[in-house]
Write a protein that binds this DNA or RNA. Structure first.
Lengths: 148, 148
DNA sequence: TCAATATGTAGCTACAATGATTACGAATTA
DNA sequence: TAATTCGTAATCATTGTAGCTACATATTGA
C-alpha cells in the first residue's frame, strides 16, 4: 500500500549503469539514455543534474556531447545516489497530528526518531552495492539465500 | 525527493498507540481516534481494518462500540504494522525500463533484488520498536547518539 | 421494540506528487 | 555556420492519497 511512486532513484541507477557500461570514451546523450530507461529525456537530464552536482558525472552540450561518468563505477555506492536524491526527507510517510493533543505530539516525535533509524538502515543496506555491481548484475535475493 | 506521501503507517502507529494508552477497558471510536491523528474517521477505519485482519485489534459496532487492542502493546512490533500495510510492495520506487533493452532488463532485475535487501533492512529496523515503546516515547536520534 | 451509536464500505471529490511534453536559449563541435 | 545537446522553465495529464457523504448493518440500552 505504501509503495513509493517516485522513480528517480531507479532511473538514476539505471542511467549510471548505462554510463558505466560505455567502453569507448564517448558520451551518451540524455535522449539515448531515456530510451533505455523508458522515460523522458528531460527527466533524465534533471535526475543526472543532481548526480552532476554530487560530482558523479559530467555533461557537455553540443555535437558529440552528453554524459560521462566521472568516478569509478566500483566506487559509486548506491547509498550515495540515494542520499543525493533523498537528502533528509523522511522515508516513512509522516502525518500531521492534532497539535493540541499531547499523545499526538509525543507519537509524532517518536515517529520522527524511528524514521531516522529506518533511514540509516536503508542507507547502510544501499552501501553494500555499487554501480559496478549493478552493471555486473546483482544476484537474486532467492539465489543469495540459497548460497548461504 | 523520494518521500513517501502515504501516511497509513504513521496513522496506524498513532491510533494503535492511542489504544495502548487506554487504561479502563473501554473501546475508542474511529471518530475519537481520528481527532487525535488529525485525519478522517473513515480513513482510520480503513487503516484499522487492516490491523484487524492481522489480528492486532478488534472492533464492534453500536453504542459503546469502537476499537480495542487485542495483543499486548509490548508485543506489537512496528515491523508487523509495516508489513501488514506494505506487503510485498517495493520500497524503492521502481521504473519500467524498455523491455527490448538488454541492459535495461538486467538493471531492473538488480534493482528488484536490491529492493528486497532494503525492505529487509527496513523491517529489521522496525523490529526494534514496539507500540509500547512509542507509548512511552522513543528517544530522539540525537539523544541516542549522545548516549553512546 | 425502538432509538441511538458505530462500524463497514461504496462512491465521489479535492489536492498534491510525478513525470511527460513543449519550448527555447546557451554552449559546443564539425 | 549549421547541427547537436544541454539547461531549464512552463504547462499538462495521470495517478495516489485522503476527505467527505451516504447508507446499510450490527449492537446496545432504555
Amino acid at each position: 500500500m505504501a509503495r513509493s511512486t517516485n522513480t528517480q532513484f531507479a532511473v538514476a541507477v539505471h542511467v549510471l549503469t548505462m554510463l558505466a557500461g560505455v567502453t569507448d570514451g564517448r558520451a551518451m546523450s540524455s535522449e539515448e539514455l531515456s530510451k533505455s530507461a523508458n522515460v523522458n529525456a528531460v527527466y533524465v537530464r534533471r535526475v543526472l543534474g543532481h548526480m552532476r552536482n554530487a560530482g558523479l558525472v559530467r555533461s557537455r552540450p553540443g555535437v558529440n556531447g552528453g554524459w560521462e561518468l566521472v568516478a569509478d563505477a566500483a566506487q559509486i555506492k548506491l547509498r550515495e545516489v540515494w542520499q543525493v536524491l533523498q537528502g533528509d526527507e523522511p522515508v516513512l510517510g509522516l502525518h500531521g497530528p492534532d497539535p493540541t493533543c499531547v499523545t499526538g505530539r509525543s507519537v509524532q516525535k517518536s515517529l520522527a526518531s524511528i524514521d531516522r533509524t529506518v533511514a540509516d538502515a536503508v542507507a547502510t543496506a544501499l552501501g553494500y552495492f555499487t554501480v559496478q555491481d549493478v552493471l555486473e548484475g546483482v544476484p537474486d535475493a532467492a539465489q543469495l539465500l540459497n548460497a548461504e
